[in-house]
Design a protein around this nucleic acid. Sequence first.
DNA 1: TTTATTAATGTTGTTTTTACATTTATGTTA
DNA 2: TAACATAAATGTAAAAACAACATTAATAAA
Lengths: 229, 229
Amino acid sequence: MLNSYSSADKVLLAVDCIIFGFDHEGLKILLIQRDFEPEKGKWSLIGGFLKRDEVLDSAATRILNTYTGLNDIYMEQLYAYSEIDRDPVERTISVSYFALINIENHNAELIQNYHAEWFPINDAPNLIFDHNEMVQNAIKRLRYKTSVKPIGFELLPEKFTMRQLLELYEAILSKELDKRNFISKINSLDILNKLEEKDMQSSRKGSYLYTFNKEKYEEKLQNNFALNL
Amino acid sequence: MLNSYSSADKVLLAVDCIIFGFDHEGLKILLIQRDFEPEKGKWSLIGGFLKRDEVLDSAATRILNTYTGLNDIYMEQLYAYSEIDRDPVERTISVSYFALINIENHNAELIQNYHAEWFPINDAPNLIFDHNEMVQNAIKRLRYKTSVKPIGFELLPEKFTMRQLLELYEAILSKELDKRNFISKINSLDILNKLEEKDMQSSRKGSYLYTFNKEKYEEKLQNNFALNL
DNA sequence: TTTATTAATGTTGTTTTTACATTTATGTTA
DNA sequence: TAACATAAATGTAAAAACAACATTAATAAA
């Protein structure tokens, strides 16, 4: 029977951030090389401890900022990991958070001032503690999210081609999609603006650039919907 | 910059359980009347504190058992709540868990030996702290689950009629479903055994009883699927 | 001017979903 | 014992969504 509050069983509460990014090479996660013991020098998710006067969401934001300088990144809570010896130093429960960001907007900053580095999700180093598991679960969540929310806004440059959007979805779902069917499904969502402008990098013909229509996009974000790709 | 482990910011970690049940009256949640301060006498989710040598899943199981005598209930972790003053006594982060159980199998035991009580989800008392929010989020999760996993096994009596199954889904989704379409979708899942036996309670004609085909059911549980109701 | 490259575009058959009404079995009542 | 009342069981057709698929168009480079 639970009787009263005791301070006997307080624990350390950590936050670990799974940051997804996307560029021409594919889907990536942001990792850092730990600069303290234990496991110093090993690759790890960006993480830190919750402070007494902080909610988890803020801790996640603060920690991400501390390690990467990134600001105003919306993160979403995922799961609390609590295996007894997941951290060998001290009993620590860790709550994972994940976010999507646009690599090109942030890359210079990250690489220059911090020791954070992007790794392709299929070619990342082995991570400390239970961080590999955290990443795998975050990928699952990301896949699920593609089917109920429009994503891409955060991961692509402001102006992008249909091919880039297609490749983003293919990278997330790790399967090939039919180009024509993909395009017509995306168009049916009615969240893109087709620009006059063309991107001439990728072909002689050039391909139209698109931007997200922020208002319509936000509207869709409210009401879940099904996007079967 | 995060430097080393400090014990300065340890917190209490709680677990709160949202237990769903179903009977002829509809979908219900299990609540208890708090028998300690603060908020003594008010209704609350079943909850308690994580112990140092315990993982969250075990804590959830232990706490549920302590308050209700219930054993072997599979629970699933949902979300960590961390508002600073969510618990007025002391900074406490709470991780919510949810489970589905069959009311009829457990009711007697619960009501007799403990102070737990079932409330219809649409007619439950106001709860302490942020427990109302926890319940609302759990309902959302439950709805989501209906679309990717077969549920019902846990909530219905061993033998049940199609009508009962229909009413369960209607209660969870809180919308009416077309009976014929529902039945054919359920049948297409191929997880039920139709018995010879009929239930004569509900009508003069009587309606066939079904059981879940445990093997096929388990099989479906593994692989997510889409059930659009 | 020809060539090479990638972009843009639409149709058809198949499957899934939705909407919807009649007949059947059986206990109750007149 | 016949008529009645009640809920169960059942099927179809139209609409929508999905999947598979190949040709033409625009442009830079040779």
